[in-house]
């Protein structure tokens, strides 16, 4: 019998009293807000070298008007997702370094309950981040209302659930690394190498059609680069909207990842 309520209550006790977790979470939340609200100022004060040595100020732009604000903020937030991923890695590898996973299995915890409770923690953390972004977007949008702008603010809201899926896929991959390598230091380093170097080299080498199936690549593609006046200036055109392909690939990876985690727990000595 799967007893999720008690597994979740256990996760809550573990997280609620874990000072390191909250400390890092607060630092992350502040950095996220700082970045979200300072990017526009940085871009608008940036000067680019257009022709020869002629410096030119970029055309003023607003990241925060409805409805683009949802797309812009979720895209920017995507660059910071490595920090909460460290929190997930810590929560997983702690169970190995404290040997509490072993203790809980001995006490009668079902391995499926354990995996499910970690998935729910990932869903919870991802949701909290998306809610924070949504609040920021809502407030930023209200502060940058343009008179005569008839766009309804909800029209691009789908970027929020897309970012949620991006985070869940990313954190789940991090969790898989945690289960595989067990020790926090090793896992953090290998996950950094994988996400910033290995998968990118792979994506660069492989034809696009194949690279789009890589897990972090697909997760990153969910919220594409926003089309801004900056892009227009450089004459870059980017795809808009969310591709069904990326959604399917992410869900596919989630199934594979959690099956693999369960297999690791089942087959390996604790």
């Amino acid at each position: 019998m799967v007893n999720l309520t008690s597994a979740l209550r256990a996760e809550w006790i573990k997280i609620l009293n874990y000072r390191t977790f909250w400390l890092l979470s607060v630092v992350y939340a502040f950095s996220l807000l700082l970045v979200l609200f300072s990017v526009q100022g940085i871009i608008n004060n940036m000067q680019v070298n257009v022709n020869g040595n002629q410096m030119m100020k970029l055309p003023g732009m607003s990241l925060y008007t409805f409805p683009q604000v949802w797309h812009n903020l979720t895209f920017i937030a995507g660059y910071l997702k490595i920090f909460p991923a460290f929190l997930i890695i810590l929560l997983i590898t702690n169970e190995y370094s404290f040997k509490t996973l072993r203790q809980q299995i001995i006490s009668g915890l079902d391995r499926r309950e354990f995996v499910a409770s970690k998935l729910i923690v990932i869903l919870g953390l991802s949701s909290a981040i998306v809610i924070l972004i949504a609040f920021s977007g809502f407030i930023a949008g209200l502060l940058h209302l343009k008179p005569g702008n008839n766009q309804i603010f909800t029209s691009s809201l789908y970027y929020l659930p897309a970012h949620l899926l991006e985070l869940v896929t990313y954190f789940s991959t991090a969790a898989f690394f945690g289960f595989l390598f067990k020790r926090s230091g090793v896992t953090v380093i290998l996950f950094l190498i994988y996400s910033y170097i290995a998968e990118r080299i792979l994506a660069f080498r492989l034809p696009d059609s194949v690279a789009s199936y890589l897990p972090l690549h697909a997760a990153g593609n969910l919220v594409p680069v926003p089309e801004t006046s900056l892009m227009n200036l450089f004459g870059i055109s980017v795809k808009q909207g969310i591709a069904m392909h990326d959604i399917v690939v992410c869900f596919g990876w989630l199934i594979i990842i959690y099956a693999a985690i369960y297999y690791i727990l089942k087959a390996r000595d604790l």
């Binding site: 007893n3 009293n17 809980q104």
Partner: peptide
Amino acid sequence: FYPYLTARQNLKIIAGI
């Protein structure tokens, strides 16, 4: 057990299981 939890909190986790 979890080093940062009290005896009681640790026992709550096991009691739940």
